[in-house]
Amino acid sequence: MTDFHDGRAGIDAALVQRLLAQQFPQWAELPVTPVKIDGWDNRTYRLGRDLTARLPTAEGYTAAIDKEHQWLPVLAPSLPVEIPEAVAKGAPGEGYPYPWAIRRWIDGETASMESVADLDDFARSIAEFILALQSVDATDGPLAGAHSFYRGAPPSHYHDETVAALAELEGQIDTNLAREVWDAALATSWDRPPVWFHGDIASGNLLVQNGRLSAVIDFGTSGVGDPACDLVIAYTFFAGSSRETFRTAVSQDAATWARARGWTLWKALITKDFPVIERVLDDHLTQTR
């Protein structure tokens, strides 16, 4: 029997076809094809022209299935661009041990420096999306925790990993300045009612049509809590005038930005993303000196 507990192993188009035949025979004859750009948390397949199937690659990613199915319809009417539409939930079957999801297909090209027509305009669009998301009633929303991989939670959750990474990178980066950035993040907290956050606003989850933002996908790490994690794109995609355009348009306070730099630094340290580390350190100096 296939070991589906080994990451992406065993998940393929044939499995999707068997699951459809077993659970959704109305779609069993649709062609099943892998999407061109896929993530690690889920394998995604296009079903015909209008649908997709998303299959978690490990148990830790399964919480997103019920969460997205419940909350995507709640969020969608308040957001300025398209987001995934939950169509159906699949159950474990054919040896595959996890729940899975069927979504509506969204046309668009993954955001990149080549596909975005105007970075400043794109920065404003992302800021508009974030503010619209934060404005949605967060009552009874899923509080940040394991389901969001602690995005939206206090940065102290990542403290041990950050300290260990700083020790490992001693001599390769300015660890004193990096520790200053981290301490500044730990010194602040989200002291207001929790708000909605996406949790992974990254280029791979942003779709573009005619050079403009047209959709935001993959709400698997979404929840309610501290929205600082949604500012990370300032350092991973924007720079110069587009970063400043984003900073102005998204209108978050200095403490939230301090936590955003801390969150970005943690991730960049553990992945050894030196360009992002340098951007965070430079921005800390610019904003605090």
Score class of each variant (00 low, 15 high):
Ala249Met: 11
Asn42Trp: 00
Thr33Trp: 04
Gly204His: 04
Pro25His: 06
Trp182Met: 10
Asp191Arg: 06
Pro142Asp: 04
Ala185Arg: 01
Val163Glu: 07
Ala249Phe: 05
Gly60Pro: 09
Ala14Thr: 13
Arg18Trp: 12
Trp40Asp: 06
Ile217Thr: 08
Gln22Asp: 14
Gln172Tyr: 05
Gln209Tyr: 11
Ala268Phe: 06
Thr139Gln: 08
Ala111Tyr: 09
Ala260Thr: 00
Arg243Asn: 11
Asn205Asp: 05
Met113Thr: 13
Asp3Thr: 12
Asp50Arg: 15
Arg46His: 00
Arg289Ile: 15
Ala91Val: 13
Glu168Asn: 01
Leu75Ala: 10
Ala187Arg: 04
Asp12Glu: 02
Ala101Trp: 05
Leu47Trp: 10
Phe129Leu: 07
Pro73Ser: 13
Ala249Tyr: 09
Val216Arg: 05
Ala239Gly: 13
Lys267Ile: 14
Leu166Phe: 01
Leu119Gly: 09
Ile126Arg: 01
Pro92Arg: 09
Pro56Glu: 00
Ile130Glu: 06
Trp190Ile: 00
Leu15Ile: 03
Ser251Lys: 11
Ala215Phe: 03
Gly90Cys: 05
Pro97Gln: 05
Gly39Ile: 02
Asp140Tyr: 02
Phe274Tyr: 14
Gly145Asn: 00
Asp191Trp: 00
Ala268Gln: 08
Met1Arg: 07
Ser125Gln: 13
Arg104Asp: 08
Ser222Tyr: 00
Ala260Gln: 08
Asp118Ser: 00
Gly141Lys: 11
Glu128Gln: 09
Glu82Ile: 12
Leu186Asp: 03
Ala258Asp: 10
Val232Ile: 14
Pro227Gln: 02
Leu119Pro: 05
Ala21Thr: 15
Val136Phe: 03
Arg247Ile: 00
Leu79Met: 11
Val35Arg: 01
Ser189Asn: 02
Arg8Leu: 12
Leu75Gln: 11
Thr188Cys: 07
Ile233His: 13
His69Ser: 14
Thr57Arg: 07
Asp38Phe: 11
Pro155Gln: 12
Ile270Gly: 01
Glu278Val: 06
Glu29Ile: 04
Trp100Val: 05
Glu161Phe: 06
Gly93Tyr: 14
Pro34Gly: 04
Leu19Lys: 08
Thr288Asn: 08
Ala268Ile: 01
Gln172His: 10
Pro99Gly: 12
Ala21Trp: 09
Tyr158Asp: 12
Leu166Thr: 06
Gln23His: 11
Gly204Leu: 01
Arg247Thr: 12
Phe197Gly: 06
Ala146Val: 14
Gln23Lys: 11
Ala88Thr: 06
Ala13Ser: 09
Gly10His: 14
Arg8Thr: 10
Pro92Trp: 00
Pro84Leu: 07
Ala132Asn: 00
Arg8Ile: 15
Lys272Ile: 01
Ala91Leu: 15
Ala184Ile: 11
Ala53Asp: 04
Thr256Ile: 12
Phe274Gln: 07
Ile233Gln: 01
